Amino acid sequence: MDGSDCPDCSRINEVLSRIGDRWSMLIVISLDYAEVMRFNELKRHLGISQRMLSLTLRDLERDGLVRRTYYPTIPPKVEYALTPLGKSFCAPVRAMGEWALKNLPNIDAARAKFDAEAARTVEPV
């Protein structure tokens, strides 16, 4: 398949890379349940670094999934919420999260089997 078969493939890849990363998905899930969260609240809830949270929120805001609301109070207050586009993304994210929870025992068993077999055999480099 060349570029003419899928002229938007690179753009699709760009979007999927952004929304498919773990922090973006966890932020969307958090905002889906809480509706509105402040920066430090998200940071504590997710256990994410300040820099990674800032970068991810900025990217989600740029893509139209998250709305940032600044209140000029002392100290300043900033809240984050999902936009309608972000809310439309919640169903697929929720489905993937539910799939992961449901299949954790299967994944753990597959990993244990793989690791046990790998420990018995040394693959040539």
Rank of each mutant, 00 (worst) to 15 (best):
G86K: 05
R51W: 01
R58H: 13
P92M: 03
G20S: 02
E117D: 15
L60W: 01
F39A: 00
E79V: 11
C9Q: 08
R58F: 09
G86R: 01
E79M: 14
D63M: 10
T56N: 08
T121K: 13
G64S: 00
I12P: 07
P7S: 03
N106I: 10
E98A: 10
D108W: 07
V122K: 15
D2G: 13
Y71N: 07
E14Q: 14
E61N: 08
C6S: 11
E61P: 00
I107W: 05
R38F: 02
N13K: 15
G47M: 00
V122E: 14
I29P: 08
N13I: 02
D5V: 07
S24M: 06
P76I: 08
R58N: 08
A34I: 06
I48Y: 02
T121S: 12
C6A: 15
S54P: 02
H45C: 07
A112S: 11
T69K: 12
L31K: 06
I19W: 04
W23F: 13
L26R: 13
M37G: 03
E98F: 04
M96P: 01
D115R: 13
Y70Q: 12
F89A: 15
A112V: 07
V125H: 15
L57D: 01
M52V: 09
Y80Q: 03
L46P: 10
T121M: 12
V66R: 02
P92I: 03
D8E: 09
V66H: 04
N13F: 14
A116E: 15
S54G: 09
P72K: 03
V66Q: 09
L57A: 06
I12D: 13
A119C: 05
L42F: 03
R44Y: 09
L26F: 14
A110I: 06
T83P: 01
K87G: 05
P7R: 00
L57V: 05
L82T: 05
R111D: 09
S54C: 14
